[in-house]
Amino acid sequence: MTRRAIIFHGTGGSPGVAWYPWLAGRLAERGFEVEVPHYPGLNVTPIAEFRPAVLAAHTFDRDTVLIGHSGGAALLLALLEHVRVAQAFLVAGYSTRPNDSAEPVLQESYDWATIRGNARDFYFINSATDPYGCDAAQGRAMFDKLGGTQIVRNDGHFGDYNQVYDEFPLLDRLIA
């Protein structure tokens, strides 16, 4: 059986930036069927409207690995209220507004018990030096509600328009 991995880019991102193509290639070499969809409406369209389209566009099962970066990580929380997967990796993730920007990807509240039951493993990878507030405190807040593993680095936002982050070996090693 082929395992599936879906990598969700962050706000204003696209499948070809940062470490997404590198990780997709690494996972494909390991036999994963990898999707790196482009969602320009991420964190633009309110999550209640956005989530159903994402759920309908992909197949999720108990062997699926979800990887989300920044706004894509926040999207994972909304998806995990509705689907069961093997692993969820929230990179520079957040569950409350990390700064003064509007965050349409966030829900007003989350069913943490349902989310907790819908993934075998949770990983929260945040940076103490995240310039957007998607920092270790955000990761800790999710970890406290969901358990799993929290990893804190000093790696900025793990890639964006002014931070080159073309490879992510740690993430590659963690994906089972």
Rank of each mutant, 00 (worst) to 15 (best):
M1I: 07
M1L: 07
R3T: 09
I7H: 11
I7W: 11
F8T: 05
H9T: 08
G12L: 15
G16C: 10
V17T: 10
A18F: 08
W19K: 00
Y20N: 02
P21W: 10
P21G: 01
L23N: 04
A24S: 03
A24T: 03
A24N: 05
R26F: 07
E29F: 11
R30Y: 14
R30L: 06
R30E: 14
V34W: 02
E35A: 14
V36K: 13
V36T: 08
P37W: 05
H38D: 11
P40K: 14
G41W: 15
V44L: 13
T45Q: 14
A48I: 12
A48P: 15
E49H: 12
E49T: 13
F50P: 15
R51E: 13
V54W: 01
L55D: 08
A56D: 13
H58C: 12
H58V: 12
D61P: 08
D61L: 01
D63C: 03
T64F: 08
L66P: 01
G68Q: 01
H69C: 05
G71S: 06
G72C: 15
A73D: 02
A73H: 08
A74N: 04
L75I: 10
L75V: 12
L76Q: 01
L77E: 09
L77M: 07
H82V: 07
R84H: 07
V85F: 05
V85W: 01
A86W: 13
Q87F: 01
Q87R: 05
L90A: 09
V91L: 14
A92P: 11
G93N: 02
Y94F: 15
S95E: 11
T96Q: 09
R97M: 06
D100V: 11
A102V: 15
E103N: 14
P104Y: 00
V105M: 14
V105Q: 03
L106Y: 12
E108V: 07
T114I: 05
I115Y: 05
I115R: 05
G117F: 00
N118Q: 08
A119C: 04
N126K: 00
N126P: 07
S127M: 01
S127I: 02
A128N: 13
P131H: 15
P131D: 15
Y132Q: 12
Y132N: 13
Y132G: 04
C134D: 09
D135H: 12
A136W: 02
Q138A: 13
Q138F: 05
G139Q: 07
A141R: 10
L146W: 03
L146D: 00
G147V: 02
G148K: 00
G148L: 07
Q150L: 04
I151R: 04
I151K: 03
R153S: 09
N154V: 13
N154R: 15
N154S: 14
D155R: 00
G156L: 14
F158M: 02
G159A: 08
Y161Q: 02
V164P: 06
E167G: 11
E167M: 10
P169C: 07
L171H: 11
L174A: 01
L174I: 02
L174F: 01
A176S: 10
A176W: 04
